[in-house]
C-alpha cells in the first residue's frame, strides 16, 4: 500500500513527465531542435546549419553540426544531435541523428538525405527511422520520409517541403525569403499539419558584425517567439537560442557548427 502523500508525489511527477513528453509533439509535431531551428521556428530558408537536414530535405549544405536542446527548460529531458553532410559537385548527402533521453522514455531518430542543387533549383528526399521506448521496453520502430523542392536566387528563395510523410506527424510547409538589405534577410512561411492547426511563421536574420549574427522568429498557433545569437569564426560557429511557449517555460538550445 503506497502512502497517500507518496502516491500524490508519484502521480504529480508522472503527470509532469507526461505533460512534457506530450507537449513536444503538440507544440511542434516535427522536432525543431537545433539552435538555429529553435531561433527560426523551423524556417530552414534562413538556416545554414547542417542539423536542419532533419527538417529540410533541400539544405544543400556541407559540414558538421552538434547540438544540445533543453525543451521547456526541463532538467529531466535532454535532446542531443549529431549531423553531418558531404557534397560532390551538385549532389549532397546528409546523415544525422537526434536522441531524446528521459529516465523513463527514449526516442532516437536517425535519417539519411540525398539532395541535388542545380542553378539554384534544388530537390531532395530524406528517409527517417524513428524508434521510441518507454522504460527500456515496448520499443517500436517507424519509418517516414521527407520530400522537398527549393529555388534560391541570390537573396531570394522559395521552398516547399513535405515532412514525415505517411506518419501522424505529416507536415506540409511552404516558405519564401527576401533580403531587405545586404545584412537583413526575412522569410515567411505557412505550415499545414495533418493532426494540428495550420499556422504562419515569420523569421529574420541579421548580420550585425563580421562575427555576430542575430536571428528571430514568430509563429501563431501557438504563439511562440524565437531568438538566437550566432558567433561566426572562420569555418565554424557557435549559436545559442531560446524559444518561448504560451504555457510552458522557454526552450533553450546551443549548437556547434563546422563547415567544409
Amino acid at each position: 500500500m503506497i502512502p497517500k502523500a507518496n502516491w500524490l508525489s508519484i502521480n504529480v511527477k508522472y503527470l509532469a513527465i507526461l505533460l512534457l513528453l506530450t507537449c513536444i509533439p503538440l507544440t511542434a509535431s516535427v522536432g525543431e531542435y537545433s539552435a538555429m531551428a529553435n531561433a527560426l521556428s523551423g524556417i530552414t530558408l534562413l538556416s545554414d546549419s547542417v542539423a536542419d537536414y532533419a527538417i529540410s530535405p533541400v539544405m544543400a549544405q556541407k559540414g558538421l553540426s552538434t547540438f544540445y536542446n533543453r525543451p521547456f527548460n526541463s532538467s529531466e529531458l535532454t535532446i542531443l544531435g549529431l549531423h553531418n553532410a558531404v557534397g560532390r559537385k551538385n549532389i549532397f548527402v546528409g546523415v544525422g541523428t537526434t536522441y531524446l533521453h528521459h529516465e523513463d522514455y527514449v526516442k532516437h531518430e536517425p535519417y539519411l538525405n540525398l539532395n541535388y542543387r542545380f542553378h539554384g533549383l534544388g530537390i531532395g528526399a530524406t528517409g527517417h527511422m524513428m524508434y521510441d521506448s518507454v522504460k527500456g521496453e515496448d520499443g517500436e520502430f517507424d519509418f517516414a520520409y521527407d520530400l522537398g523542392a527549393a529555388y534560391i536566387r541570390g537573396d531570394y528563395g522559395l521552398e516547399l517541403k513535405l515532412l514525415r510523410g505517411d506518419s501522424a506527424d505529416e507536415q506540409l510547409a511552404f516558405g519564401m525569403k527576401a533580403a531587405l538589405s545586404p545584412e537583413v534577410t526575412t522569410a515567411l512561411g505557412y505550415v499545414k499539419e495533418k493532426n494540428h492547426d495550420d499556422y504562419f511563421r515569420f523569421g529574420i536574420a541579421a548580420e550585425l558584425h563580421e562575427y555576430v549574427s542575430l536571428y528571430g522568429s514568430w509563429q501563431n498557433e501557438p504563439n511562440r517567439f524565437g531568438m538566437g545569437v550566432q558567433l561566426n569564426l572562420d569555418s565554424w560557429s557557435v549559436m545559442y537560442s531560446v524559444r518561448t511557449h504560451t504555457a510552458l517555460d522557454p526552450t533553450h538550445a546551443i549548437s556547434l557548427d563546422i563547415y567544409w
Partner: peptide, 15 residues
C-alpha cells in the same frame, strides 16, 4: 515507407 527508405539508401551510393 520501407520501400522508399530502401530506394533512398540505394540512391545514396551515387554520391
Amino acid at each position: 515507407k520501407q520501400a522508399l527508405g530502401l530506394i533512398l539508401l540505394l540512391s545514396c551510393c551515387l554520391a
